[in-house]
């Protein structure tokens, strides 16, 4: 887990793929822009494969990495 890296979830657009703390990969479905939660669909979830394809609210600290291009100004390093 990248403790020194903080993802600003407010700027994550739908379609953005992220890596979660438990190693899962998920795709942002919608973003209420509260800086705390995003709705995302699990793409892979090695720890619990039953979650793959399901949508959940993802807590901001559980998002450890943005895959692909990082949103402009959206990520800062602690």
């Amino acid at each position: 887990m990248l403790l020194s890296r903080i993802v600003n979830v407010r700027v994550l657009a739908p379609g953005t793929q992220v890596t979660l703390a438990d190693g899962s990969r998920a795709e942002i479905v919608s973003n209420p822009a509260d800086g705390i939660w995003v709705f995302a669909r699990y793409l892979t979830s090695p720890a619990d494969t039953s979650r793959e394809g399901t949508e959940e609210l993802i807590f901001a600290p559980d998002i450890v990495e943005v895959l692909g291009d990082e949103p402009r100004g959206g990520i800062r390093h602690a």
Partner: peptide, 13 residues
Amino acid sequence: NTQIFTCPYHGWS
């Protein structure tokens, strides 16, 4: 307009 109401204190939503 919102999908959820999130508490900024501890994050209950």
